[in-house]
């Protein structure tokens, strides 16, 4: 069992949990993910590692409540334990050899963009962060980003916090103002990563995106997480999860990501219904 050591609600739909998992903590690097279950007979869910503490033997995950499993996870408290927590899986972010980078985070993706920004910062790179949310209530980790960034833009769709607009607007402005990045790292919704990659392609700036497709095992066994990258089929779990954003077929990834939407919707409604009954 893997006990929950701390829990922080970051915004109405995003929760941060610190899980005790010494083997995972010992090896974890930014960019990698874990595979967990929240109950026996539960689904296996991949979550990218948001932080880790090798001394304490803990790994932090940050997730958005989007379905039945995340809903159940969000209802767990400090002292509860996950039955399964395996990792670290996938390849770590390559941070070496870059002098100036732009980190673009969208929504819950900011949670996993942060450790990447932090690592670049610690290695002495100039870090520009652009983080985007729908509205002010959903903003989280802005201070953390600020602390590891040489420049930070906070964007919201409705302008209720930071600047009004999309992360791509901010990125374009920075590039147009003469900022010269060795690499752009974009982590967020598929549609955001697609448009970041489209923009940077015009400017010829190498761009890395972190993919989060449907997965079962996370070790290369099922092939459910396959993507087309540069015309070749890749498995996000072992070949990624980070890929060259200019080569990823985002439209296919979006289509594959929606494969079980009706099932997921139904399962989510069921879970919510059960919690509502408990409240009554």
């Amino acid at each position: 069992m893997y006990p929950i050591r701390s829990k922080v609600v970051l915004n109405p739909t995003v929760v941060k949990m610190e899980i005790e998992a010494p083997r995972v903590a010992r090896k974890a690097e930014p960019g990698q993910f874990v595979m967990l279950r929240v109950e026996d007979d539960g689904e296996r869910m991949p979550l990218t590692i948001a932080d880790f503490d090798r001394e304490a033997g803990t790994v932090t995950v940050i997730f958005q409540i989007v379905g039945a499993t995340t809903e159940k996870f969000a209802h767990m408290e400090v002292g509860d334990a996950l039955p399964d927590f395996a990792g670290p899986l996938g390849r770590a972010t390559v941070t070496e050899g870059k002098k100036k980078v732009a980190i673009v985070g969208g929504g819950v993706g900011c949670a996993i963009a942060y450790p990447v920004a932090k690592k670049f910062h610690e290695q002495g790179a100039i870090v520009h962060s652009i983080i985007g949310f729908r509205t002010a209530d959903l903003v989280f980790m802005a201070d953390e980003f600020r602390a590891v960034s040489d420049h930070m833009d906070l964007m919201t769709d409705d302008g209720s916090a930071g600047e009004k607009g999309l992360v791509t607007n901010a990125l374009k402005d920075l590039i147009d103002s003469g900022e010269d990045y060795d690499e752009v790292i974009a982590i967020g919704p598929l549609v955001m990563m697609k448009f970041v990659a489209k923009l940077t392609k015009e400017y010829g700036i190498p761009t890395v995106v972190s993919m989060n497709p449907i997965m079962i095992d996370g070790t290369g066994m099922c092939g459910g997480c396959r993507l087309t990258v540069g015309g070749e089929t890749k498995f996000a779990c072992v070949d990624g999860p980070e890929f060259d954003g200019h080569l990823v077929d985002f439209d296919e990834a979006m289509s594959r990501g929606s494969m079980y939407k009706p099932f997921e919707r139904h399962a989510y409604d069921e879970a919510c219904h059960l919690y509502n009954m408990e409240v009554k």
Partner: peptide
């Protein structure tokens, strides 16, 4: 031997295509 092979033919990443493993 856990890594599934695919045929590398068009359409293999459509929704509804599974490896037997998956």
């Amino acid at each position: 031997a856990g890594l599934p092979r695919f045929m590398k033919i068009p359409g293999e990443n459509l929704n509804g295509v599974y490896s037997a493993n998956e």
